[in-house]
Design a protein around this nucleic acid. Structure first.
Lengths: 243, 243
DNA sequence: CGGTTCATTGAGCCACATCAAGAAGTGTGG
DNA sequence: CCACACTTCTTGATGTGGCTCAATGAACCG
């Protein structure tokens, strides 16, 4: 629970143009500068817990986190993978419905809840951006539901790799990853399993199946080579709705 | 594809206080009155199709619809059950990502897309309400992900009944359904199966299991009696995140 | 009445879970 | 530098929840 970098300028912020502040002009940014604060979390550290108060709203600046629910008997399901620019928390609610856990070292750009809610009310650029981001998350959550409900283990793994590759290349401005060569997995097998509603053993087995059939290559257990992205999409049983 | 009631007054609208217009004042309502139009759909009729243009945004006024995706080989997964007050369509996108299908006779209160987007920009009460509703849908979609990914068939069925009972009693202002006695299922076995990532046979079997163990009673195949709501919640493996 | 659709029930099977055992990496202390 | 513990990943053997296939029943309708 260490405080992080003194307030860096928003101008040099890596998520300046993709986070909730993306549409803000210079004046609005100046206000954000005044009320924001950074905080970092170590890998494995809890950022929020289901049912507990969450009195800051934040943007994830660097690192990776998961959002999950654990049932009484220990079954866990991830409901979202948080990457840079993703927003954490819900304006209008001071309790988290999910556990949010840092997977790698995470830096958040935080706003005190009441202050941020006031900003949302008074800053149309923030409200509009927040709406757009929430709608995008909703699409992603529904896509997840299709995967969890109807895809096979193999398709789930392939889908996961595809969506990860897409998000990674979106961050580097290539909307269609032509040859991302190698994809780094931010999650362990266990975390992937929880994300896809599988067990670690099934995740491991399906990854080796994909490797043995040449769909992917494995540099090491966390780095996946994708020689043919379209073939991977095919394995994912993708149906992007444009049919 | 028949046009529905001439423009009824918003004042007598059944979803006046729960739809996207809920927070509007009299002046704002007057504007909505001018640009809205009603349309009804027969049971089974398509309201939108995945990948096809959707040039109206609407509120569902009466009836019930599903939102789903069908994969090439016919596997179908519902990603949402649309009931009165629910919003259909996404501002800023003119294509639907999902099939939306009337399950019963449906009446929509529709707005032409560009007009509505302008309203969102210029009417904070609408923008704020839309954000709140979108955040609620996001919570629901994530809850769905937990159910699809980690609950057993029996728990899925019980969860579904619980959430249906909650939504039904929310519509009638009781936040905790004390004894809703009998719950009407708006969906067929097939539609329930697609909603829960199961087959019709499993849905049928689990319903009879719940009946045989006394958790529910069946008036007929579409009407379920719930003698003890808490017991049903227990069967659902509910973990509402509050502790 | 037959035809059609929807729900239930049974028998058998299979994809994925569970249980169990290595293997490979990583960090710590001597 | 190695020995050891510990964690993560892989692989194999076996079990099972829910799917598939198939038949029957029940409601509706022309």
């Amino acid at each position: 629970m260490h405080m992080a970098p003194r307030n860096d300028s928003c101008k040099s912020c890596p998520i300046r143009h993709s986070a909730v502040c993306a549409e803000c002009d210079a004046d609005e940014l100046a206000i954000l500068e005044q009320v924001k604060s950074y905080r970092t979390y170590a890998p494995g550290e809890a950022i929020a817990s289901a049912g507990e108060p969450l009195d800051h709203l934040s943007s994830l600046v660097t690192g990776c986190a998961t959002m999950s629910r654990t049932l009484e008997d220990g079954r866990r399901q991830s409901v979202g993978l948080l990457l840079p620019a993703d927003f954490i928390g819900r304006p209008g609610r001071n309790v988290s419905l999910y556990d949010i856990e840092a997977v790698s070292e995470v830096t958040l750009c935080r706003f005190e809840r009441l202050q941020f809610e006031k900003l949302v009310r008074n800053t149309p650029h923030i409200a509009a951006r927040l709406l757009t981001m929430t709608l995008d998350e909703l699409d992603a959550a529904r896509e997840m539901a299709v995967t969890l409900g109807r895809r096979t283990a193999r398709e789930k793994i392939a889908s996961f790799l595809v969506s990860l590759a897409r998000r990674q290349s979106a961050a580097t401005k290539l909307s269609v990853p032509k040859a991302p060569v190698v994809l780094h997995l931010p999650l362990s097998r266990h975390e992937i399993a929880d994300h896809l509603g599988l067990t670690i053993e099934t995740v491991s087995r399906q990854l080796t199946m994909l490797r043995k059939t040449g769909v992917i290559g494995m540099v090491d257990s966390r780095d996946i080579a994708i020689p043919d992205f379209e073939r991977l999409q095919l394995e994912a049983g993708e149906d992007d709705g444009t049919g």
